[in-house]
Amino acid sequence: MSFSEREHTADVLMHVCGATKQELYEEAGRALFSVMFPLCTRGEVMIQFTLSGKEEERLLHEFLSEILFYAEVECVALYRAKVTLTPSGLSAELFGEPYQRERHGSGTEVKGISLSGMEIKRTDDGWCTLVLFDV
């Protein structure tokens, strides 16, 4: 549904919401892409991975950390994530294009996903949480 940046002095703090938990994960991915690859809007490259685990916050933390890993080792700029929740955890598909410094150099490197403040709650706006990116 949406994500918006909140004030944070050292890092990037995002408030993320989704109508479903699945959508919340996808929006959190989009929030991360908006920081790392603001100019990436298309994608012929797809990366797939699965994660196991039941605890929602930990799964979200691992999902976003996995995006950082794949973006770096596969040298891709990403713009969209499709998430399917499964009985054992989740499966994810990431979409983007090969990283090019000239095109994507304006992005900000995210060093890690903090656990600080991450708490998935049901609100009037759907499922929401804060996510803090260390930049």
């Binding site: 916050e57 691992e62 890993f69 890690g112």
Partner: peptide
């Protein structure tokens, strides 16, 4: 960055195991 990420979950579990209350995860 990856070492920190890897150990956050290990140490979150350890904090539970050793019953250390956390003011911030």
């Amino acid at each position: 960055h990856q070492i920190c990420t890897d150990y956050l979950t290990t140490l979150e579990d350890a904090a539970k195991k050793y019953q250390i209350p956390l003011a911030d995860n």
